[in-house]
Computed example of a mutant assay.
Amino acid sequence: MNEIGKGSPRPIRSVYGEGCIAAHALDLLGDRWALLVIRELMLGAKRFQLVRAGLPGISASVLTQRLEGLEEGGILRRVILPDPAGVQVYELTELGKAVRPVIDALCRFGVRLPGHDPKKFISPTALMLSMAAMVDRKAAKEVEVAAGFDMGRESFRGELENGRWEVERGAAEGDVVFAGSANTLAGVVYGAHPLAHWLGSGTVTFRGDPATGQRFLDLFRLTGRAGT
């Protein structure tokens, strides 16, 4: 891939005027939408329109501003994919990838706050990252399953490794494969109904052994204790 505009990160404009290193980080990450833009790139590079598809509340102009600011801060970079694609995408730098524990911690903190509405829009990447944060790591150490998720414009493959859900963007492949919209699959993963309820619903497609699929789904709960 060819990198565009390669150079050293620019000094971050101080918003809070403090020497606190947390405040220094928030000078860059505290802008509205900034963390969610990073979230959308956490599992792989994306074109502008695909980033925006994961953030339906953002305007094109604001997204452009956030991408430019994060690029100036060394969080992401623009690259041109090799032919035959030959298109520009945005991808996180190593510094940008280091934001992952912050997003994981926000997931675990957010689930403890009242008022969460799981019926609101959730992006495919957001669902995958929430699963990584909310997996029951103790129980997951006893399970070895590779799983794929096909959500239309985005698909993912991952597996349980040492109690963690390790996932990346790519072809939906694995011992079990789930297909549907992100919001529907969020209901499959976190909802009260077992997998059998969804198999005849017409909204979810499943490949693999249903018992294995259910065992996999049982590892994920929207509770304050998950991820421990």
Rank of each mutant, 00 (worst) to 15 (best):
V79T: 13
L76V: 06
V79D: 11
R47W: 07
R77Y: 13
L76A: 07
L70H: 04
S59L: 00
S61Q: 06
K46L: 15
G69N: 03
T64W: 00
K46F: 07
G44N: 13
I58A: 01
Q49I: 08
S61W: 00
Q49E: 14
G69D: 02
G44I: 13
L81W: 11
K46C: 13
V62D: 00
R66N: 00
G73T: 04
L70S: 04
L55K: 00
L55A: 01
P84L: 08
L63H: 04
E72H: 05
G74Y: 07
E72T: 02
L55C: 01
T64S: 12
G44V: 14
V62L: 06
R66K: 07
I75V: 09
V51D: 10
G57Q: 01
G54P: 01
P56V: 08
G69P: 01
I80Y: 10
L55G: 02
R77F: 15
A60C: 04
P82N: 11
G54W: 09
V51C: 05
T64Y: 01
L50R: 12
L43A: 13
L70R: 03
S59E: 02
S59Y: 02
Q49D: 15
P84S: 10
Q49L: 09
K46G: 11
E71F: 03
P82M: 09
I75G: 00
V79Q: 12
E68K: 08
F48M: 07
I80W: 14
L81M: 15
R66C: 06
R77Q: 13
R78S: 11
A53V: 01
Q65S: 07
R52M: 07
A53C: 02
R47A: 15
E72N: 07
R78Y: 14
R66F: 05
G57S: 03
L81Q: 15
G44F: 15
L50D: 15
G44L: 14
E68L: 08
G74S: 04
R47C: 12
F48P: 10
A45M: 11
V79H: 08
K46E: 13
